[in-house]
């Protein structure tokens, strides 16, 4: 590696502190990533690995330069950064947003656990029609990441909610369960019985895995995935991929051991 290149690298590594602890960070990495890399835990809710960040729940706030920023999106940009993840102001802000979320989802275990940690409680004076949804939009982002885009956040203000078009069962839903899988409050319910799956008020026929027979995918899902779909359940899919790679010709000049 040339000196110049390593100089560039060097500039991309920043030094600072998190909760007083000296930390190195990659320029542009989020505070959350950086904190996690040294084992400092910051609570998150709307953030999820693999989905584009949205920064709407405000739970992951941290303090820097006397101001609150959200760690899941705030990038580390300068040497000498100093971040507090548990200052009184941070804890109070988290208590505030958790209390507000409890008005919507007073029974969700994930939120109750955090509420306990931060001393947040629901206020009966303000809890109106709790529906167990905190509008974090993880389901919507998962659906968009799949390119199905069957559900969306609609309406504004307090009325904002997740829905299919015109509050009807979403026509583009392929029954993949990604939304239910990423929901932090377990609000997206589905059932499977007699080779059928129900979700979003729609019913889907499940197709058995051609190798082991486990029904995992819906017909619509396989059709939607088109050529990419093998129809294998994840378990068999992984096995097949592994054996394919084992038998593959090594790339010329490269050494790839598995």
């Amino acid at each position: 590696m040339s000196g110049e290149r390593s100089g560039e690298r060097f500039r991309d590594v920043l030094r600072g502190t998190i909760d007083g602890k000296t930390v190195v960070a990659r320029r542009g990495a989020t505070v959350l990533e950086t904190a996690e890399s040294v084992g400092i835990r910051i609570p998150t809710l709307c953030h999820r690995e693999g989905l584009p960040p949205d920064g709407n729940c405000r739970l992951c706030v941290v303090e820097t330069k006397g101001k609150l920023v959200i760690s899941c999106m705030f990038p580390v940009r300068e040497d000498g950064f100093a971040i507090l993840t548990q200052s009184p102001g941070v804890r109070e802000a988290r208590r505030f947003v958790l209390s507000l979320m409890l008005n919507r989802a007073p029974k969700a275990p994930a939120i109750l656990k955090l509420a306990g940690e931060y001393g947040a409680g629901a206020d009966p004076r303000f809890s109106r029609d709790p529906d167990n949804c905190v509008r974090c939009g993880r389901c919507v982002r998962a659906c968009r990441a799949n390119r199905t885009e069957a559900i969306a956040l609609v309406g504004r203000g307090f009325e904002r909610s997740v829905s299919g078009p015109f509050e009807k069962p979403p026509p583009d839903c392929v029954g993949c369960l990604s939304c239910a899988f990423v929901c932090p409050t377990g609000n997206i319910l589905y059932s499977e019985r007699d080779g059928k799956r129900r979700i979003w008020d729609k019913e889907f026929r499940l197709v058995p895995c051609p190798e082991c027979g486990t029904p995992v995918f819906t017909e619509e899902q396989i059709r939607f995935l088109g050529e990419k779909a093998s129809g294998l359940c994840p378990e068999c899919g992984r096995r097949r991929l592994a054996s394919a790679l084992r038998n593959a010709e090594p790339l010329s000049g490269g050494s790839r051991g598995f």
Binding site: N56, R58, V134, R135, G137, G157, F158, E159
Partner: peptide, 10 residues
Amino acid sequence: SCGKCVPCRE
């Protein structure tokens, strides 16, 4: 309020 973030919406 657009309803996107918790503090403003709630």
